[in-house]
Structure formats: C-alpha cells, structure tokens
Design a protein around this nucleic acid. Structure first.
Lengths: 191, 191, 191, 191
DNA sequence: TATGAATGAGGATTCATTCAT
DNA sequence: CATGAATGAATCCTCATTCAT
C-alpha cells in the first residue's frame, strides 16, 4: 500500500489527492483512513519508513567493512549506487519531503531525525579513523560528517529533479580524492 | 510588492493564499492579478529575481579578486555570509522553491538554470587555476564545481529548515582545507 | 444494550455515530445491525421504550390514588420527581427526540403518540372530577389536559437544556395553586 | 438571504446542506461563506435574529397597554396569534433550534438568553400587578413567569410538530381563566 | 451468529481566478 | 486602473451500511 508513494513522486504531496492514492492502491478512501488518520500521516509514514531508516540501512551495509577509510569510501559508494540503481525513488521521495518541510512540522522532524542519525554514523566512522591514527588528528569530525551529508542530499535533490549536468561518477571520484588527500596526507599513498 | 515573499517563507507556497499575499502587500487581489497572471507566476518571478540572479551576484562579488584560489575561497566566504547574514531569507526561499519543483515545471526550470549558471561560474574559476598551473592539472573541473554547488544547496536546505547541528564555520574550514589539500598538494605549504 | 442511550444524551442523535453506540454497548457494529436495521431505529426504539411508555407509567403510579384532585396533584408530583430524581435522563432523551422530529417522521409519530396517550389519561382524570362535581362543570377538559402536558414538556426541555432559572418546586406550587383555585373555587378550601 | 431559513424549516438543521441554502438563496456557496464563517453560524444568526428578538418584540407589542391584567392577557393573545397567524414559521424555527441545543452550544446559549429575556419581561408585568395590589400579594412572580413561558414553548413545539389535538383557542381560554382566578380571586368578578 | 474491515456517496469548507463597478 | 465580492470546482474527511470470514 505504501507503494502508493508512486503518486507522491509523480505530482508532489500537495497536488496528490487522497482519492489518487486510494485509486492507485486499490483501496477505498475509507479503508485508507482506517490506517492513516490523515493525508499528512501517509506522508509521514513514508518519510519514516523510507527515509528514516536510511541511517540503519547505511550502517548495515557498511559496518562490517574493516578499516575506517574503506568504510568511509564504501559509504560514498553506497550512496551513489542507491541514487542511481538501488533506490532512485527514495531520492525523489526526499525531494517531496523537503517540499513539505515548511508546511508540515512532523515531516520536518522526520527529516531532521534522519539527518542526525546519518551524521552520528558518519561521525563515528571518521572518529574511528582519527582514533587509530589513520586519519589526520586535527580533523573536525562533526563538520566533516555534516558536510558529507549536506553534499549527499544536495546531489540527491538535483539528481532527482533531473539536473542534466550531474556527473555522479565524476563527483564520486572528486569526493573520494578530496577526502583521501585531506584525511590521509601521506600514508595512504604507500598502501 | 514582491517583498510579500515573506508570506511564502512563513507558510510555504501551497499554504499561502493569494489573499495572504494581497493583504501583506497592501494591494488588492485584483491589482495583484494585473501584474501576475497566476499565483504560480508570483513564485516564478520570485525565483528568477531572488534566486536566478545568484550567479551574476556571485560573479560581481568575486570576479575582481585576483588569483584563482583567492577567488574560490572568496566564493565559499560569500556563500557562508549570505546564508548567515546577508540573505538568510534567500535560503528559505530556495527551500520553498525546491518544494515546488515537482509540481511546477517553470520553477524547476528556474532552479536548474540557476544551477547551470553557478556551475559555469565556479567551473571557470577553477579552470583558471588549472590553466595557470596553480591547481592540480588532473582536476575534474565540472565535477568539482557541481560538488561545491550541491554542497552549498544541501547546507542551505538544512540551515533553512533549522537543523540544529549545523556548524557553518566548522564546515567552511573543512571545505577550504579539503579544497586546498586537493587542488594544491604542495605549493600551498610554501605560501 | 439500549442503555447506550447514554451516547445520544451526550452528543445528540446526529453527532453520535453507530460506532460510538457499538463501543459503548460492547457489541460490534455488525451485531448492532442484527437487531436494528438502521441507526434511526435505535432512536425510535428508545423513543418507544423510554418515552412511549410514559402514559402507562403515569397511570400505574397514580391510578390507585383516590379522589380526582389527589390523583391530579399526584401527577404533578410524579412529573417533578421524575424530572429531578427518578428519570432525569428521560428528560434529556425527550430533548434529543424533539430534535429529530423534523428529520425523522417515525420519531415524530412516536412523540405524538406519547402526547395523545398522556392527554387521554390526564383528561380522564380531570373528567372524573368534573363528573363527580368536585371540579367546576364548565372546565374544558381536553384543553386543560393539553395545557398541562405542554407545560410539562416545556419545563422538561428547559430543565434538560440546563436553564439556570428554573425553580421546579416554585413552579409546582404555582401550578397546583392555580389548578386548585380554577377547578375548585370554593369547596376545596373547606376540605 | 436569511429567508433561506425556509430550508431549515423543511428538513431540519443537520439534513440541510450548505448547497441547499446556497441554491435557495440564489447565492453561491462561496458567497455564503463570505458572510457566515460556518454553517452553524447561519443557524446562530437565525436564532438571534428571529428568536432572540422575541423579548423586545413582545415588549413593543404590549408595553403600552394599560393595566397589568390587560397587559398580561395581551401577552397571551400575542402569543396565540403569533403562532397561528403572524409568525408560524418562527414556531418551527424554535423547533429546529431546540434540536440543536445538545450539539451546538452557541445555539443553546441563544435559546437560554431568549428564555431569560422573556422571563424578565413577564415577571415585570406580573410584579407590577402585585405591586399595585391588583394581583394577589403572595404570588411567586418568577415561578409564574417561567411557567407561562415553558407552557408557551411547549405548545409551540407540539403545534409546530403538527400535533392534531392542539386546540389553541381552548387553551388560551383555560390559561386566561386560570390566571384570573389565581391572581385576582375576588375583584375580577366585579368587572 | 458475531466481527470489524471495507465501501463510497456525501458534505463542509477553501481558494485561485474573474469581472462588474 | 483598482477593488473585492462572487464563483464553484476541488478537496479532505466522515460514517451509515454491507458482507466476507
């Protein structure tokens, strides 16, 4: 049923009618309202299910990688492949959700929670590198993490809005290169 | 009159009524419709006036700086101070505009045009550095430019949505440091 | 089950949903519909059970009193104590029922039947007094009976709606005094 | 516009659609909502215009009559002729209003205000008779007034609901006779 | 026989847009 | 040129009633 996120992706939240969702889902309006007290709650649920779980998903997909650098670069990979292949619609959903941030506070909370969750995880990955001495010791861990996340979401927005110039692979290389030179001035070259 | 963008910033586009705008602007609804054929056009005009001019504004504020690195870092500075001090409401406007991307194609075009404009300028700045040999020669100029822009807009979104953890100054430092180490592996150290 | 009249008394007929009734009664909606074909029928049954039986109830409570005057004044007493102590909720139910009179013809019939029944009984009581010569011979029996009943229901309405100024006991005294002086100009004084 | 009370009288408040009112009034729904923020407010306005003014209307029609008894009996006359000839629809409106008492508190307040207003006036009329010695000195003025009013409204309800047995003229005579014998034990006989 | 999920017509309300004044 | 009342389609949500299990 939640797969009726399709409708949101097509027209955005406000232009989507509850009737649209009902039609698409095969349910009746009434049935829909049995499970979601409000149109807004459908959106919220979507935000929590599809977007709110991103932190733990990222964790699951990268936690077992050994070595902070490998894990960090894996995060970048995961992001790129999610955007392009795995969950392209999640990117569009993020776009829809951002659109509701000003008009719906629960959605806003949901997005901010996702933000915090991802920051925390990224920060922990970087912090580990710093602790083991693999990354430069003067790195501002939190700032770096929020930078990466803001970048990721900014890319997601443009990508999902269909910006033609976005060269995902080029950007991935640049980011990885920058991270490496910044975090690992010399040693990485030896490996 | 357009200063009635205030209303959009407060409630978002969809929740704002034409009457709201009229009331705030002191005009009558009828008068409003003399100048804008459609509610959507008010938004579009806003997007073009306030957001579409960003490229030339950035150009004006940084073009006279000498030296590619100085100019590039100046861009970062300009961005941070615009967000925090100069045009904080423009950040929120960007947020509102992103919200309409899926529902209003002209708004989408406006945003993408702004994107291209900014990319072009940033790319030209970087390209100059590469050409003069000040920046590493293998830099992917376009990818770097879109990375910076995506980052900037991602930060703008979270900042305008009120994400508490955003440490603008920390991020600025990190970005500058990363850019420097990446673009200028050795020479910068000599300066 | 019918004790779910409680819900009607709280919100009125229209604002009460069948689900409310089901919840309050402990039955399921389906079960409810096994016994009552329609929401309206629940109301109708209530009207008949609780309001329609008023005539025979009044009869039972006063028929054995000897003497027309005593019986008539007993009717007044019964009314007052029913309203205040015995069946205050029946008063509210009458209020609810009156509200449906225009929208539901069966309810209307029910109320009018109750009206006739009570008129008939009151008229018979008065008629007896006239026949035995205890009451003035020129009394308009029916008009007097409907007057008493209209008065009773008018009082019930205001009382059930929570009119603050209603002084039930004062009104009882006035009514009794008026009835006595009117029906029994002189003789009653001797008794 | 308010003449669209016709629709309420026909179907009752709840069964009447805002569209019904609009159609009947010749306005569009939107226009209706320019003047009344809510369906409920239409009703409330009706209650205040048509029912709330009853006290002052009664005052105007009877205040100039000389003599308390004449004025009191004039009140009864006015009531009867209003119900039968002058404002029969106001009677039905009262019926509709009573129906909303439990579901709409503002309507309830309106009715109670009307009640107080009428009580006050009737009480003042009676009190005058008591003061001049024309009425018995031990009369419970307030109780008598509320009795008369409850009676009037009770009659109105049954009359408006179409109770067939209601003999308005008979009741008027009975009430006047009762009032006279009660208030004026002896002197009236001289007239 | 009981359950309660499903139905979907219906209703109050909003709001972009028009147009007579 | 300005005004703001009027329009009415469109939308979210409710709830009496049904019916498969």
């Amino acid at each position: 049923m939640d797969a009726a996120q399709a409708v949101f992706l097509g027209k955005g939240y406000q232009l989507t009618t509850v009737d649209d969702i009902a039609a698409r889902s095969g349910l009746s309006v009434g049935a829909l309202y049995r499970y979601f007290p409000t149109k807004s709650d459908i959106m919220l649920t979507l935000v929590e299910q599809r977007l709110g779980r991103t932190p733990e998903l990222l964790h699951r997909l990268t936690a077992e990688i050994e070595g902070p650098w490998e894990r960090l670069s894996r995060c970048v990979e995961v992001f790129v492949s999610a955007l392009r292949v795995r969950h392209p619609s999640t990117g569009r959903l993020l776009l829809v959700a951002w659109g509701e941030v000003l008009q719906d506070n629960t959605v806003r909370q949901g997005l901010l929670r996702r933000f915090s969750g991802l920051i925390d995880y990224l920060a922990s990955v970087i912090q580990e590198g710093v602790s083991t001495g693999e990354f430069r010791s003067d790195a501002n861990v939190t700032a770096l993490a929020s930078m990466l996340l803001s970048l990721a979401d900014g890319v997601t927005l443009y990508w999902s809005a269909g910006a033609p110039e976005i060269d995902l692979h080029g950007m991935r290389s640049v980011v990885l290169a920058m991270l490496r030179t910044y975090l690992n001035p010399v040693p990485i070259r030896e490996e």
